[in-house]
């Protein structure tokens, strides 16, 4: 019997495509963000709040992943930005190839920020690199504050955690300080924002976070010789 060392990533094909996407985003100065949460935590609502409040001149585009229906895309189209649904037909996460395919007819030079709304799921999307600059995990106050400890992978891999639906805090037993402490136990460097799309609290800080990240993406863009 002999043993052949393989020493490769199981998802190396996904990672290869994600690497190509990341290089393209960098080249065009496009900030790509991958929004991940459980179903119903408020990804589409956060996108509505974003598209409604984005500063003049910042060009956003959205890819929305769902197992079935184009409802999220339909909700977001009224803001006038390009929105395209990715219907996975059963797959519980988006992968890099799906992103690549759906970007084929979009001009990245005309997109400053590409927001990807992943399929509602806190587990599987954590494994798939989409070429994004940052994963963002959402946790709503109607969930348990121990979710970061139960689903450490996605909190560990996200640069930002957004605690959503904070207008409901008076009505639910959610301990927001404990939730934030749990997120930092899993990932000490994680950034945290508190947002209510209903009251508008925190939206300004979120937009500021986006603009700061977009400025970083532009600064990292290779200098054109033309």
């Amino acid at each position: 019997m002999n043993q052949v060392p393989l020493e490769q990533k199981v998802l190396k094909e996904n990672d290869r495509i994600a690497g190509e996407l990341r290089a393209r985003f960098l080249e065009h100065g496009t900030l790509c963000l991958n929004l991940i949460s459980a179903p119903g935590s408020g990804k589409t609502s956060l996108l509505e709040g974003t598209l409604a409040n984005v500063p003049c001149g910042l060009r956003l585009a959205v890819l929305t992943g769902d197992i079935q229906t184009q409802n999220d895309a339909n909700r977001l189209r009224r803001f006038g930005f390009p929105v395209k649904p990715i219907t996975t037909g059963g797959t519980c996460h988006l992968d890099a190839q799906m992103i690549d395919r759906h970007l084929a007819d979009w001009d990245l030079d005309a997109i400053d920020v590409l927001m990807i709304e992943n399929v509602g799921n806190l587990v599987c999307p954590a494994s798939y690199d989409l070429g994004e600059a940052a994963k963002i995990v959402l946790l709503s106050v109607t969930e348990g504050e121990d979710k970061p400890l139960k689903y450490p992978s996605i909190f560990f891999k996200s640069k930002l955690a957004v605690i959503t639906k904070t207008d409901l805090l008076p009505y639910v037993p959610f301990d927001i300080a404990q939730a934030e402490e749990n997120a930092r136990r899993v990932h000490p460097e994680i950034e945290i924002l508190r947002i209510s799309n209903t009251s508008g609290d925190g939206i300004a800080q979120w937009i500021a976070w986006l603009e700061e990240r977009r400025a970083q993406a532009l600064a990292a863009q290779p200098v054109s010789l033309v």
Binding site: M1, N2, V4, P5, L6, E7
Partner: peptide, 12 residues
């Protein structure tokens, strides 16, 4: 956070 193929054993 590894998700890696380490090795393959085979019989000739």
């Amino acid at each position: 956070d590894q998700l890696e193929l380490a090795s393959l054993e085979m019989e000739s």
